[in-house]
Nucleic acid binder design. Structure first.
Length: 948
RNA sequence: AGGACCAUAGCUCAGUUGGUUAGAGCGCCACCUUGACAUGGUGGAGGUCGGCGGUUCGAAUCCGCCUGGUCCUACCA
């Protein structure tokens, strides 16, 4: 073995072996355990969020597999409609100077598939680097044939049940992407905007109670004036009561529009009058519904002004009797240009009363970054109400549990106020909607055109054309848990692995994905999709900032694994930026934070860092310091193993039946191992990966390495130890290490496998050539091996050794200088422990002698420490710096005084003595005695030194 | 506006039903290349547990209010 741990050599080798040996596939034995990977975008690349999530899923999967469960971790990728289409559009534009429309639908889709085949491997390669033990043989894609079948089935069945409908509705429209998007894809951003107050002249000479011949309405969107179909006042508003039913003359347009009463108008705001544009505002749409107003659309799909408006009734039927003329000056104008023009024209007409600056919130498309426009379009919707009810109940009754639980509230509050889901997208990349139209526009929903003809008894020669739209990506990913298992076929996999065990996901897609999976899965399988949802937070940078390209603070998990030099990192962060002006600052910050670039840390260290930071339900600030720390931890484990192998390979490790004697240290470490096994297992069950990793870290470093390995040296290296004792220690060294490796394997798959291959044969656990730690049993604690008395003895031993080390440090005695030490006071047990552990004490505390002093009064001048009741004495005749030592003692005495006072205060409180449990009071009393003893010793010492 | 979560050492975080001398890692200081490991060893410094009030014999822990931060939902004509 190399002297230092070098992860890169180990990792690729082992992953390949595991994959070739097909160790990731379900065993077919034992209770099923299934996790569905949240499918990453097929053309995406691995970011820190994926790496974190994959680590958690892999840890769970490997752990359950070792526990003997029939484990499936289902892998796959998502076609990600909008994201992928945009990416390919941009690529085609850059490389060929063509738009998708230049290419045409079929050619463009071919391009997307080409790109998918070319780049779709990146994310899966990176998943392999993370060590993910997914079953590659079952890899799925949300656009593969089987999935298309599931999507069609669901769509047709929902339609036939009346749960999918088509209609002209106001939807969130992205004028850049030219598609509808869902509420969830809209990002609200606060901004400073203008607020214009316009005068709308009253028609037919009507005047307000105040004698004015106009009403004042205010708007942040003057261009929508062109589509106004009413002015609303509050029905309670006495100022305008007489005007309800009268008309105003819409400025610039000249259309007469009514004044209606509607509660939407807020009497407190502005003049109390509000313009109503049902085709361009969601609130106004509702007002329009209540008041029976026409919907007047003035925008093209690109949000340019139409030559003539389009008027519809609430069912979306064209209205013929509405004046749809618009002033020709605006025709073809972009909405923002039109806004300026309308304001200017209103001002010129003397109808602009005033302008204010206000803070308002604008909707932006999360993909395009463009301002979203409420627009009247024909879309497909899922009526969610009947689907939501059982989905709510499943969480209420505990069939699905969120971890942590408080996310259930978030889920409920959303599910209880659900809007119908707009599932059509005006894109090309995605599942095409299985609906056909005849020339009259009648719609026929079926899996194929042929089926449609049969189903609706259509003439064979009736020309049918398929709907141009595709489905929202989340419609197909909503079928993920059962679609991947072969549904609508009733496959054995579906019977075995569904419902799945746990979904590991970020809180940000609870609405997008989790809620919809629950609804659709319950509807079509009658089962919940998963029994638990483990919700994790966002991975942020070390300062708690969201990682983003524009901030230049993105860390690539692969760079943390392999390392990256500074220049490459700077290039990566500043190259190809949307806002190149930020490059300088980012470069400076990067050079400041990573002056040497980033070292290689290996996958295991990265995984361990994620796990150690995986506190439930909160964001994690990725800590480079921890990453270094866990890389060092890997090195520690590596070197401890080197030590074990050096002392065990080629030696009799007591696994072949020879007589074996266990030392105190052997019994102690075996006992501690059992307790660690309990702790780690419990933590895993509770999804407390931070606790699991911490418990293992402590055990490996602070107990196995710091104490047990040191305690093994006297046995192995001292000629006086018996062959049985040496065998016992070798066996314990090897077997405890072997168990440690199994405990570590779900968290650190690579290093544990690499070392295990060398250690297992010595421990007698390797059953066959080519065996893997992956398939070994998870360690189960044996209670009978928990040895309290060994633990007490070792604590005593450690106490004495630490006392001597303390004295050395305080007295400035060279660490290597052999000392003569005496023990005194204390009990008979202390004396026995001394006799039993003389060898260990001498070796670990570097003593030339250690003896029991029967009569404490005979003690020479010594530096002292207490271990329980017993005193450890290091005779110091000529080594003491009198003043320094007196100062130290005074400080120590003060410290003890404070502790003593604190306890005395408690004990003199009658309430405490009367009401606190007896055990608590007793504990305080014994602490008091302990502190007082320590104080007495210090005072004695002080007296002795003063007397010098 | 409503709600959720968070605030513990210089930094990143543990602290499970109230009782610990409040812990870990990194960083810092001192000493040490001892035959697994300097990606190491030994010892150490460092915290009025955001603030105020309450409940209790006892509060980092429970309750209320306040401050600061993160996020979600809604609204903003």
């Amino acid at each position: 073995m190399d002297k230092t741990y070098q992860p890169e050599q180990i990792e690729s080798r082992w992953y390949q072996r595991w994959e070739n040996d097909q160790r990731f596939a379900p065993s077919g034995q034992g209770e099923p355990y299934a996790i569905m990977i949240p499918p990453p975008n097929v053309t995406g690349s691995l970011h820190m969020g994926h790496a974190f999530q994959d680590t958690i899923m892999d840890t769970l999967t490997r752990w359950r597999r070792m526990q003997g469960r029939n484990t499936l971790w289902q892998v796959g990728t998502d076609h990600a409609g909008i994201a992928t289409q945009m990416l390919v559009e941009r690529k085609v534009a850059a490389e060929e100077g063509k738009s998708r429309h230049d290419l045409g639908r079929d050619a463009f889709i071919d391009k997307v598939w080409e790109w998918k085949n070319e780049s779709g491997g990146q994310i899966t390669r990176q998943l392999r680097r993370m060590g993910a033990s997914v079953d590659w043989s079952r890899e799925r894609f949300t656009m593969d044939d089987g999935f298309y079948k599931a999507v069609q089935e669901v769509f047709v069945r929902l339609y036939d049940e009346g749960l999918i409908y088509r209609g002209k509705r106001l939807v969130n429209w992205d004028p850049t992407l030219n598609t509808a998007i869902s509420d969830l894809e809209v990002e609200n951003r606060d901004q400073q905007g203008q607020f214009w107050h316009f005068r709308y002249p009253l028609a037919n000479g009507v005047k307000t109670d105040a004698g004015l011949d106009y009403l004042v309405v205010a708007t942040t969107r003057p261009e929508t004036l062109l589509g106004d179909s009413a002015v609303a006042v509050n029905p309670e508003d006495e100022r305008y009561a007489s005007l309800v039913g009268k008309f105003v003359e819409l400025p610039l347009v000249g259309r007469r529009i009514p004044i209606v009463a509607d509660e939407h108008a807020d009497m407190e705001k502005g003049s109390g009058c509000v313009k109503i544009t049902p085709a361009h505002d969601f609130n106004d749409y509702e007002v329009g519904k209540r008041a029976g107003l026409p919907l007047i659309n003035v925008f093209t799909k690109n949000a340019h002004i139409l030559e003539a408006a389009e008027a519809f009734d609430l069912q979306g039927r064209p209205l013929a009797d509405i004046d749809t003329q618009l002033p020709s000056t605006y025709a073809g104008m972009d909405r923002f240009a039109a806004r300026k023009a309308v304001v200017a024209d209103m001002e010129a007409a003397g109808l602009l009363e005033k302008t204010e600056t206000v803070n308002n919130t604008l909707p932006y498309g999360d993909r395009s970054g463009d301002v979203i426009e409420p627009l009247l379009t024909d879309q497909w919707f899922v009526a969610v109400e009947t689907l939501a009810k059982p989905a709510i109940e499943a969480v209420e009754n505990g069939d699905i549990q969120f971890v942590p639980k408080n996310y259930e509230n978030m889920y409920f509050s959303w599910m209880r106020d659900l809007q119908d889901w707009c599932i059509s997208r005006q894109l090309w990349w995605g599942h095409r909607i299985p609906a056909w139209y005849d020339a009259e526009g009648n719609v026929y929903v079926a899996r194929t055109a042929e089926e449609a003809r049969a189903k609706y008894s259509l003439a064979a020669d009736l020309e049918l054309s398929q709907d141009e739209d595709v489905l929202d990506t989340w419609f197909s990913s909503g079928l993920w848990t059962f679609g991947t298992l072969g549904w609508p076929e009733q496959t054995p996999e579906l019977a075995t692995f569904h419902p799945t065990s746990v979904l590991v996901t970020g809180f940000d897609i609870i609405f997008f994905w989790v809620a919809r999976m629950i609804m659709l899965t319950l509807k079509f399988t009658g089962q919940v999709p998963f029994k638990q949802v483990y919700v994790h937070g966002l991975v942020r940078d070390g300062q708690g900032q969201k990682m983003s390209k524009s901030k230049g603070n993105v860390l690539d998990p692969i760079d943390l694994i392999d390392g990256i030099d500074l220049e490459a990192l700077v290039e990566k962060r500043t190259g190809n930026m949307m806002q190149p002006q930020k490059a300088k600052a980012i470069e400076k910050a990067t050079r400041g934070e990573f002056p040497e670039g980033i070292e290689a840390h290996g996958t295991d260290a990265l995984r361990y860092t994620f796990l150690s930071q995986a506190t439930t339900g909160r964001d994690i600030k990725f800590d480079m310091g921890r990453l270094d720390g866990y890389r060092n931890f890997c090195n520690k484990l590596w070197n401890a193993s080197r030590y074990v192998l050096m002392n065990a390979e080629g030696e009799d490790c007591g696994v072949d039946g020879g007589k074996v004697e266990l030392s105190l240290a052997d019994r102690w470490i075996i006992s501690r191992l059992q307790q660690t096994e309990v702790q780690v297992t419990k933590a895993m069950e509770e999804f407390r990966f931070d606790h699991a990793s911490q418990a293992l870290y402590d055990f490996i470093w602070n107990e196995y390495c710091d104490w047990y390995l040191e305690l093994s040296k006297p046995v192995l290296w001292d000629d006086s130890a018996s062959a049985e004792a040496k065998r016992g220690t070798r066996r314990t060294l090897v077997r405890v290490l072997e168990a440690i490796l199994r405990l570590a394997h779900p968290m650190m798959p690579y290093i544990s496998e690499e070392i295990w291959q060398r250690v297992a044969p010595l421990a007698g656990t390797l059953s066959a050539e080519g065996d893997s730690i992956m398939n070994q049993p998870w360690p189960v604690a044996d209670e009978s091996k928990i040895d309290e008395s060994a633990t007490r003895d070792i604590e005593w031993l450690k106490g004495v050794i630490i006392a001597v080390r303390n004295i050395r440090a305080e007295m400035n005695i060279a660490p290597g200088k052999p000392l003569d030490v005496m023990l005194t006071k204390g009990e008979a047990a202390d004396q026995q422990r001394l006799e039993a552990n003389r060898l260990f004490l001498a070796k670990l505390a570097k003593l030339s002698s250690i003896n029991w002093l029967d009569n404490p009064a005979e003690a020479p001048l010594s530096a002292t420490q207490l271990v329980g009741e017993m005193e450890v004495l290091v005779p110091m005749a000529d080594l003491i710096d009198k003043d320094a030592e007196l100062a130290r003692l005074t400080k120590e005495i003060d410290k003890q005084d404070k502790l003593i006072q604190g306890i005395e205060r408690k004990l003199s409180n009658e309430g405490f003595v009367a009401k606190a449990p007896a055990a608590v009071v007793e504990k305080e009393r014994s602490k008091l005695a302990e502190f007082q003893a320590a104080r007495r010793l210090l005072v004695e010492q002080q007296e002795k030194i003063s007397a010098l």
